[in-house]
Design a protein around this nucleic acid. Structure first.
Lengths: 141, 141
DNA sequence: TTGCTGATGCAACATTGTAGCATTTGTGCG
DNA sequence: CGCACAAATGCTACAATGTTGCATCAGCAA
C-alpha cells in the first residue's frame, strides 16, 4: 500500500504546481475534515500530524488552492475564513454557522433557487449563503 | 425647519441611549447611504461632513446600533463588516458584491425561501446571502 | 548533476477589531 | 441653573488575521 490517498499529489501536479510538503499535507488535512477549517484549525491539524509550516506558507498554500479551484473559502466566524475542498458535490451548498459552539456545518439540502432572479445586467460568479443560529446539538442542551 | 432628519435623535432616545454626537452622525451617514458601508467608509463620510471620531468610538457606536436592532452588519469584501440601517424592509434581502468595482448592492428581489429546509433540530436566527459576480455597470464596460 | 524557477521561511508591516482606564459629557434631579 | 452620576469617548496598548519583500531552499526538467 504505497499511498492511501494518491489523489493529493496527482491533483497538485495536474494543476501545474509543484508537489511540495505543504500542499500535500494541507490537502490531506482538508480531505479528511468533515467541516470547513480555518487557518488555525488547519495549522493545529498539521501540528498533530507532526508537520509545522510557517503561517505565511499556509496562507499562500491555501490561496493557491483556491485559485486553482481545488478549495473554496467561506466566511466563517468573526472575520476569519474557513476552507473546504471542492470535490464531490458541485460546491454549491449553504453553510450553517452555530452561534453557540461556533462550528460550521455543510447543509447539502439548502440550496436557494436564485437563478434568473438577479436584476438585468448582473452576472453571478459565486453565491455564498451562510445561515446563523443554533445547531441541533446545542439545541438539545 | 429645525431638523431635516428628526428621527435620528428620537430613535436613539427611544432605545434608552444617550444622544451623542457620534451616534447622531453615524445614523445620518447610514441613513443617507444607498449601500452598506464599512467602518472605513463611514469614517470617510464623517470626515467629509467635518466630524471626526476615534476609531474605537466608531466600533462601539456601531456595535451599539447593531445591539439595539437599529443596524445590521453583513459580511462585505475581504474580512471586514459592512453596516446598513434596518428600516423600511424587514432587513431580509440578499447582497450582491461586485468583484470588479467592489460595491455592494442590495437585492430586494432575491430572497431565498429556505424556511423548513433545515435539518431537524437546527434553529435559524439569521440568514446571510451574499452573491459575488459583476454588477450591471461593470458588465457594460 | 546542474540550473532555473517556484515555493518556503523569516521579519516586518498593514488592517481590523478589542480591552483597560482616565477623562469628558449627557441627563435627571434638587 | 448647577450637581452628581453613569454612560460615552478617546487614548494607548494589544490581539488576531492577513500581506509584502527578500533571501534561501527545493522540485523538476534537461
Amino acid at each position: 500500500m504505497p499511498d492511501t490517498r494518491p489523489s493529493a499529489r496527482e491533483l497538485i501536479a495536474a494543476h501545474g504546481g509543484r508537489v511540495t510538503r505543504a500542499r500535500v499535507a494541507v490537502l490531506e488535512v482538508l480531505g479528511s475534515a468533515h467541516t470547513p477549517l480555518s487557518h488555525e484549525g488547519i495549522a493545529s491539524a498539521l501540528e498533530e500530524g507532526g508537520e509545522t509550516f510557517d503561517r505565511v506558507t499556509l496562507y499562500r498554500t491555501l490561496e493557491w488552492l483556491v485559485e486553482q479551484g481545488i478549495a473554496t473559502r467561506i466566511a466563517g466566524s468573526e472575520r476569519a475564513w474557513n476552507f473546504e475542498l471542492v470535490d464531490r458535490h458541485g460546491h454549491h451548498h449553504a453553510h450553517f454557522h452555530c452561534q453557540r459552539c461556533g462550528r460550521v456545518t455543510c447543509m447539502e439540502e439548502v440550496a436557494p433557487a436564485l437563478a434568473g432572479a438577479l436584476p438585468p445586467g448582473f452576472s453571478l460568479a459565486q453565491a455564498e449563503l451562510v445561515l446563523h443560529g443554533a445547531c441541533a446539538e446545542c439545541n438539545r442542551s
